[in-house]
């Protein structure tokens, strides 16, 4: 594991409000380590905050895994939120702005999708939900002998 990966890669529980704070702090620090600019950092942290809260509130808790990815030119941060909650029966509806089954604004999922570069959601009713997001730094990272 490279020096950068050491501060980036982590598996964090999402079981309480306090865990949400930890997730945000980790994503902020990890994205800064990878060289994301302030705006991109803020976007990633905000997307992570939305997805982690969904994991907690609707998924009944779960975890997030942060990994460092690279496509040879740029470094990226991938966040995978997973829970074994009830799943999402209608993905399209869940992703549409303004839809909420709770008391939220219904902007979390759709907003998170707009805040990151890549967004994938995999949900099976009765089994759980996994949301994977990835964003890439603008510049190539300093050479570190591969990821």
């Amino acid at each position: 594991m490279s020096a950068a990966a050491a501060g980036v890669e982590a598996r964090l529980p999402i079981r309480s409000d306090l865990d949400l704070v930890r997730v945000r702090q980790h994503v902020r620090q990890a994205s800064a380590t990878l060289g994301f600019g302030l705006v991109e950092q803020t976007k990633l942290v905000t997307a992570a905050s939305e997805l982690a809260r969904n994991t907690l509130v609707y998924g009944g808790g779960g975890e997030v895994e942060a990994t460092m990815v690279g496509d040879g030119r740029r470094a990226g941060l991938r966040l995978t939120f997973s829970d074994r909650g009830p799943g999402i029966p209608d993905l399209e509806r869940a992703l549409s702005d303004g839809y909420t089954s709770g008391v939220g604004l219904g902007l979390g999922l759709g907003g998170a999708r707009r805040l990151v570069h890549e967004f994938a959601i995999d949900s099976t009713p009765g089994v759980g939900t996994t949301v994977t997001v990835t964003s890439w730094t603008a510049r190539a990272p300093r050479p570190r002998g591969g990821f």
Binding site: V39, T42, K43, T46, E50, L107, G111, R114
Partner: peptide, 13 residues
Amino acid sequence: RPAIAQTIVHLGL
């Protein structure tokens, strides 16, 4: 702050 303003727009708020 500017970064937050941009984020708010993307979020759709």
